[in-house]
Simulated scan of single mutants.
Amino acid sequence: MHADSGFSTRAIHAGSEPDPVTGAVIPPIYATSTFKQDGVGGLRQGYDYSRSGNPTRTALEQCLAAVEGGRHGLAFASGLAAEDAIIRALLKPGDHIVIPDDAYGGTFRLFDKVAKRWGVDYTPVPISDTAAILAACTDRTRLVWVETPTNPLLTVADLDTIIEQLAQHDLYVVVDNTFATPYLQQPLRHGADIVVHSTTKYLGGHSDVVGGGVIVDDDELADTLAFHQNSMGGVPGPFDSWLTHRGLKTLAARMDRHCDNAERIASFLNEHSKVSQVYYPGLTDHPSHDVAKRQMRRFGGMVSFRHADGEEAAVDLCDRAKVFTLAESLGGVESLIEHPGRMTHASAEGSELEVPNDLVRLSVGIEDVEDLIGDLDQALK
């Protein structure tokens, strides 16, 4: 497979060479914790213990790197395990992070309840405001953490401008690319140092596996992160790696359908009398529409909106949905609905990152869009 191959070609073939012994087209699941050595210290193909490396995980890591346009991929047991490895590998007590003021609740909890106790503090800023990001940086800042689009308010960061302006600072730019996926956006091409994913979401794509991924270009940075991956041990097992790798093969096809459906639903909600505001970068009145149009292939499968009748009406809507399943997470083939204030972002309550209490978040799946719109219509009545 050539490095310049198209996205779907890379997603299908990276890490998926036919088995040299049997000719199996799909790499096998190496369900083993340890590997026979050819003499003391004589590793066979570099494997000795599955925390340190497993061929099934290696196949996934090769595919993660290929689809993000990076040189090194690292797989983790969850998205938060991936984020924690970045923090532990690159920060020390006294360091400072700039984060989005509408970051994912689990990421905020990691910064606020874990890293902060360890002596790392943070400043939340509007991630679409490059001037605010620069103003928040101090001589202690080591990371600027970017989500784009953000979870759950779908704010889009201008990666080119942010990274160009931060070039004079001695820090890393980390981009959480979970919402966009590498099919819609590849932050390394814009100069990001690290890309992080919850592979639980769109990359796995079927709501049947939890995982995380980190992709980098720099060799030294990759070695540092790999050391912490092995030392801390938050790695996926072979079956989880296999499931995620399988999901990646259909990412492009699924994302096009997610985007098709989300665009229709965002337009429907934008005209509905019970909806006071819709957050979707594909709408022309979205504040970052032009940036998203320039930076992303399409606008994604996530839609958030505010119920015109307030919090209880938003909660009731979530309960009334029938085709949309009331559940946390996102990015699976099935459509999900949730109330962020009481579910995924409850950890941000009372903080600068608290989300509106009338907010509803949709993960738009790949069902027939007429059924999805009809379900929302009946739930809003």
Rank of each mutant, 00 (worst) to 15 (best):
R10L: 11
V21M: 13
G23E: 07
Y30M: 12
Y30V: 05
T32F: 07
F35H: 13
G41T: 02
G42Y: 08
D48L: 08
D48E: 06
D48W: 14
P55S: 11
T58C: 03
E61F: 02
Q62I: 12
A65K: 00
G70M: 05
A75C: 10
F76G: 01
I86R: 03
I87W: 02
G94K: 11
P100W: 06
G105T: 04
L110D: 12
W118V: 11
P124A: 10
I127G: 01
D129L: 03
L134G: 06
T141R: 06
V146K: 00
A157V: 06
D160W: 12
Q165R: 09
L166V: 13
Q168V: 07
V175L: 04
T178P: 10
T181I: 13
Q186C: 14
Q186N: 15
Q186M: 10
P187G: 11
G191W: 03
H197I: 14
L203F: 05
G204T: 08
H206Y: 04
H206P: 01
V209S: 04
G211L: 00
G213E: 05
F239L: 14
S241L: 02
H245V: 07
L248I: 14
A253M: 12
C259K: 08
I265K: 01
A266C: 06
F268H: 07
L269D: 00
S273P: 15
V278E: 00
H286G: 06
H286V: 07
D290V: 04
R294L: 04
Q295H: 05
S304D: 02
F305I: 04
E312C: 15
A314L: 00
R320N: 13
A321W: 01
T325D: 13
V333Q: 15
E334M: 09
G341D: 14
H345V: 14
A348L: 03
N357W: 03
R361G: 04
S363W: 01
V369I: 15
